[in-house]
């Protein structure tokens, strides 16, 4: 089953008197349970592409079908609800809410969509266990290390059983050890949860462990392997 179909995505930015093409006719198809890695140099358009694929941004042209739905032409509020139900997103800078505890941050997708917390109790226990956050749940983000904060962000992205997890350089802000831990964690979670995973990364180790890897150069998408 095709989970994500991106077709000829173009995204341009107007910068004063000239136009910058961030994504240039990039296409990507992801099957259910696949682990896709997109690499590329800074400014190559990979993050922009990921934002478009995840419905966080709108392309100038091209189509994006996520779980069979055309999310480009979806109404804004409907897209929010669809995204909240079916996708998870991990940022390079974890983007935790500073005045919420780790647990509250993890449960943010549930409270944001007005869902029932009881529904995710099992998932919560699993994630806390797998991410080793048991003793940090009542801490505020500023009381956590960078690795812990990113693990909280990963838990937040997975708590609501998303069909697809998008991650934008999840290890970019971490030291080597923490980066390896997070990489292992994502891969094992993917295996364990049969999670579809689309990751933008500089981390070659992580890219090597993907089912398929793509490379973006000047906004164009190339198959790496």
């Amino acid at each position: 089953m095709k989970v994500l179909e991106c077709e000829a995505i173009i995204k341009q930015y107007r910068l004063y008197d000239h136009v910058v093409t961030a994504v240039n006719r990039a296409s990507l198809t992801v099957e259910e349970g696949e682990f896709i890695a997109i690499t590329g140099e800074s400014g190559s358009g990979k993050s922009t592409f990921l934002h478009i694929a995840a419905g966080l941004d709108v392309p100038d042209s091209g189509s994006v079908r996520l779980l069979g739905k055309d999310i480009v032409n979806m109404k804004a509020d409907e897209l929010c609800r669809f995204r909240g139900k079916h996708t998870g997103f991990v940022f390079q800078s974890h983007r935790l809410v500073p005045y919420l505890t780790a647990l509250e941050n993890i449960l943010l997708p549930i409270s944001a969509s007005g869902g029932d917390q009881g529904r995710v109790e099992h998932r919560l226990e699993l994630l806390i266990d797998r991410l080793s956050l048991g003793d940090r749940l009542n801490h505020l983000p500023r009381e956590l290390s960078g690795g812990q904060q990113q693990r909280v962000a990963i838990a937040r992205a997975l708590i609501h059983y998303p069909m697809v997890l998008f991650a934008d350089e999840p290890t970019g802000n971490l030291d080597r050890k923490n980066a390896e831990d997070v990489t292992s964690l994502l891969v094992s979670l993917r295996d364990e949860l049969k999670q579809t995973l689309v990751i933008v990364t500089h981390d070659e180790t992580l890219a090597d462990r993907a089912d398929r890897a793509y490379r973006m150069v000047d906004g164009e998408m190339y198959v790496r392997r």
Partner: peptide, 16 residues
């Protein structure tokens, strides 16, 4: 604003 952005990513619509 960025908190609202996070909420919107995780499913909160504008009405909410």
């Amino acid at each position: 604003a960025y908190v609202y952005g996070l909420f919107m990513i995780y499913g909160a619509d504008r009405k909410q």
